[in-house]
Amino acid sequence: MRYSSLEQFISQRGSALAKGPISVVLVEDDVEVDTTLRHNLQCGFEHVLAFMPAEFDLPRDLQETIERIDYDTAREGATEAAINAIIEAAPKQWIYYCYNAEYLFYPFCETRAITEMLAFHTEERRDAMLTYIIDLYSDDLDQHPDAVSLERAHLDRSGYYALARPDADNHGHPKERQLDFYGGLRWRYEEHVPPARRKIDRIALFRAAPGLKLREDHTFSDEEYNTYACPWHHNITATVCSFRTAKALKSNPGSRYEIDTFKWHNSAPFEWHSRQLLDLGLMEPGQWF
């Protein structure tokens, strides 16, 4: 089903959002849009919403299985406006958001549906889940000048680190159970990435609540949502494997001609399997086995 605006979608289909989990895909360009949407359908989301420019097209099977909303994803504040509107329209439902050419992986996702994981996470009294944005890139930029190739996808197997997140309201002391995570292409090519966009952490999975707001830096107005774990033990974390940074570095004039290859000695072929991400320590199952 297609809607000409976010307002039309909420007025006509808002009641359908009373059942989750809900996937929101913000489409910034025409790269791997169909594979992203199909990946989210395969994860088991009840609704998959595609916010995308009106001029983009979709295959017929996706036109019948997702909710398409015509939306200008390039305007300032587009992500926060879309997600905050869905939060208000879908109280208490689990929501996942990503961009095109991004793929969610969570522990044991090959055999367990997203609903199973979120049910367990809810039982642990958690309303949000930390996800790491793990950069993917083609190993051959001559063959794939936009750096995107599902068949030749690579990732960094090391080079990730975390720093304490200072609390401006508490004289700069570290926030409790919050860290800023770095690594991947944003770390290796940080001279081309604004400081505010260098972090690789995102609370991509969360439960809607009254008054909850997503902020520009991918954190939420409720500070407990921004924590990596509860106070008593480690929780599940997940990854969003993403070509987004590689695409940006190869499309922006300031970096396009400075990068001949993203490969380095710590590159490894991406196996498209949760076991690789678990083995590399890029996500953890917590108490979920």
Rank of each mutant, 00 (worst) to 15 (best):
N226Y: 03
R197P: 01
R197I: 01
Y225N: 07
P194D: 12
A208E: 01
E216R: 13
G183A: 11
A209M: 08
R207D: 00
L214A: 05
E224Q: 12
L205Y: 04
I200H: 02
G184P: 03
F206W: 01
K199T: 11
L214M: 13
D201P: 00
L212A: 04
F181D: 01
D180N: 13
D201Y: 05
Y225F: 13
D222H: 13
G183E: 05
F206Y: 06
D180E: 14
I203P: 00
E191F: 11
G184N: 10
I203M: 05
H192N: 05
F220Y: 14
T219S: 15
I200G: 01
G183L: 10
A196H: 13
L212F: 02
R207V: 03
D180R: 12
E216T: 15
D201M: 10
Y225C: 03
E223L: 12
P210R: 01
R202P: 04
G211Y: 04
I200F: 06
A209R: 09
L212W: 03
L214S: 08
Y225H: 08
E191D: 14
G211H: 07
Y225S: 02
L179A: 11
A209F: 06
G184I: 15
E191C: 11
E216Q: 13
L212T: 04
S221R: 06
R188I: 05
A208I: 08
P194N: 10
D222P: 00
E216Y: 09
E191N: 12
G211M: 03
R198I: 15
E223M: 12
R197G: 05
R197F: 03
I203K: 06
A209T: 00
K199M: 08
S221H: 10
H218L: 07
F206C: 00
